[in-house]
Write a protein that binds this DNA or RNA. Structure first.
Lengths: 151, 151
DNA sequence: TCTGCATCGTTACACCTTAACAAGTCCGAC
DNA sequence: GTCGGACTTGTTAAGGTGTAACGATGCAGA
């Protein structure tokens, strides 16, 4: 999570929930907040730990996994499959099922999301060519980011 | 695994090992064979199970994971990150680190690999634009395959 | 009030992956 | 021949990831 265009990220999420008739509960707000304030992707158990610390009681895995499912299903959070970790989604306004390409740095561990209309178009073309009906895309790239290349 | 251009897949793997000075041991051959003869991606524990059945003794996880690492590192097998499952790689001749795009059908469970020069090119362009040094690509698409769309 | 529905809590378990160390095997150097 | 070094495999044990199942809570509308 890095961009904050006008509204803070969490406020944008709240607004989208309101617009779509979704319930932004205290728990969901906390989990979203944990992800939004992290500069790195967090695993489910890291979130469980942070949440347990915040609430001074043990939060069991299913509570967090359900919350993550909600956030991912509604496009507020992205799961990085190749790392089993979660980040707050940069591109909130887009379609539910729209996913950008996740770039993860193997040195600093930070991830960012980018969009590519050209790749979207190519994927669509491939899908047509194969008669394949696309439901979900997982496009992730690992490597060394600009900051870490300099250093 | 579906294509068999001339040589059977396992023979091609053997030939590549010979050429590169890699040891194709009995264990590696068996694991490769298990994957080659499956029409679906297999999880690590499914492979452990099959191998244990074949050898009539319990094979412990590290044995299989090490073997899978070898096969994946050398481009003989592809891990589908979003499913934590493995398939025999269709495109054997290519670079070690070359990965195609994996299409997985959510109905029949089968996966296939395709290449796209256009997407390769786009990814390279994005990498240049972001000053990002690509080391690994995970490109996976879930959806409904042609066969299952008809049915 | 009663009922239905979505959310959240809790227990228990299954699956996936790795660390660490021991044992076996093969091959070249001496 | 045998010694040492590399690569491979076996074994034990544990840690990380994810889910099924069921109960409790809380809120909206009949």
């Amino acid at each position: 999570m890095q961009t904050t265009p006008g509204q803070p990220w969490i406020s944008q999420v709240e607004a989208l929930c309101l617009k779509r008739g979704l319930q932004m509960t205290a728990l969901r707000r906390e989990v979203a907040g944990i992800l939004a304030s992290s500069d790195q992707p967090l695993g489910a158990y890291a979130i469980i730990q942070k949440l347990s610390d915040m609430q001074s009681r043990i939060i069991a895995p299913p509570t967090v996994y359900r919350t993550l499912d909600f956030l991912v299903d509604n496009g507020f959070v992205v799961k990085i499959e190749s790392r089993q970790a979660y980040i707050a989604c940069d591109h909130l306004g887009h379609d539910h099922d729209h996913h950008g390409i996740v770039l993860s740095c193997v040195k600093c561990g930070r991830s960012s999301e980018i969009d590519s209309a050209a790749i979207e178009k190519e994927v669509a073309a491939i899908a047509v060519g194969c008669a394949f009906k696309v439901e979900r895309k997982v496009f992730e790239i690992d490597g060394v980011c600009a900051d870490c290349t300099v250093a």
